[in-house]
Computed example of a mutant assay.
Amino acid sequence: MSTPTPTGKTWVDSAPPLLPYRYGLFSVASLTDGDGPWQRAGIEYFTDHCAQGGYVLGMCPAPAQGGGTTHDKTVFGGPELAEGSEPFTVYSRAQCNAVGFEDPRGMALTRLALIEEREAERAFTELILGQPDPRYPLGQGAAAVGLRRALGALEADAALHYAGAPTLHAPRWTQPYWDAANLLQPNGDTGNQRLTRLDAPVALGGGYASNPFDPDAALAGGEFWLVATGTVRGQRSAPFANETFTTSDNTRMALAERTYAFDTDCYRAAVLVTVEGGA
């Protein structure tokens, strides 16, 4: 890359301001900054948040026909291990002829801050949302349904199989259909988050694939997978940049990086949605 030179047009010292990118993955994730062992192998922990139980009638057990009592309690579970994504690194590379290229590290770090949420969403799609064998509340292989029905199915399924509010993930192009169906509301505590009417956070990710299970396989027009997870947490390192200079071609290069790992607790479910014919 050669150093840009003036073209005769009026030179302005800075680019116009950006409106902030909102309502993506970072709006629903609890992010913790800092280095740690997670950078080598990711995150895992034991969780009770998908625990199952049951109920029995009455207070005192009574003899049951065939032996035992009416208070046999057959639903049980042991420790459940939740595993997050493997670590991944988001990067931005700045490279140019050394003449007039005064701060490659600063440029790389600035650009990293601009693109890291989108790139984190792409990795999150592959490493978490698109992993095989989610729960299918409407049945595996079920035909695509409208957005209202899909949302209701996922929130009902989460109530039965997860102890808290789910987090919903949808590609960003679906936003007009959520609003047309009046399915979302702002979070009163933060203007950067959208919630369902049952207060489940919704991420509308620009880096999310319509088909996270096979991003290269096209879905029918107007279709996408709506995925629900448990609470989203992210670990991330401090951003850093390294710079090199190549004497053979007089080039300066800086690479800015930041390492991430996400986890979503023990719950993940998916419904195929169509927006054709309304939500």
Rank of each mutant, 00 (worst) to 15 (best):
P137M: 03
A108D: 05
R111T: 05
P134N: 04
A123C: 13
Q140H: 15
R148K: 14
T125E: 08
R149D: 14
P137G: 02
R149W: 00
A120F: 00
A150S: 02
G141H: 11
L129E: 00
P134S: 08
A143F: 07
Q131H: 08
E119S: 15
L109Y: 01
A123S: 08
I115G: 04
F124N: 02
L127A: 10
R149N: 12
A143V: 14
I115S: 06
L112A: 02
Q131S: 08
L147R: 06
E126G: 00
T125G: 01
T110M: 05
A150D: 09
L127T: 06
R122D: 05
I128L: 11
R122M: 15
R135H: 07
P132T: 09
I128C: 02
A113T: 11
P132H: 12
G139Q: 15
G146P: 03
A143E: 08
E119N: 11
L138C: 09
G146E: 03
L127H: 07
R149A: 12
F124S: 02
R111F: 01
R135G: 00
A144V: 10
T110N: 05
L114V: 11
R111W: 11
A120D: 00
L109T: 01
V145C: 13
E116Y: 09
E117Y: 06
P134A: 12
I128V: 13
R148L: 10
Q131R: 15
R148D: 06
E126R: 14
A108I: 05
D133M: 15
A123T: 05
T110Q: 13
A143H: 10
R148N: 15
F124Q: 06
V145T: 11
A113M: 11
P137W: 04
L114A: 09
G130P: 00
A150K: 01
Y136N: 06
A113W: 05
R149M: 08
I128Y: 03
D133I: 13
A142D: 04
L147C: 06
L112V: 00
A142T: 05
R111Q: 03
L109P: 01
A123E: 08
F124H: 02
G130C: 13
P137V: 01
R149K: 07
G139W: 04
F124L: 07
G141Q: 04
A108Y: 09
Q131G: 03
L147S: 01
R149P: 01
A113L: 14
L147V: 09
P132S: 12
R118Q: 15
E121T: 02
L129G: 02
E126N: 01
I115M: 15
T125I: 07
L147W: 06
R122E: 12
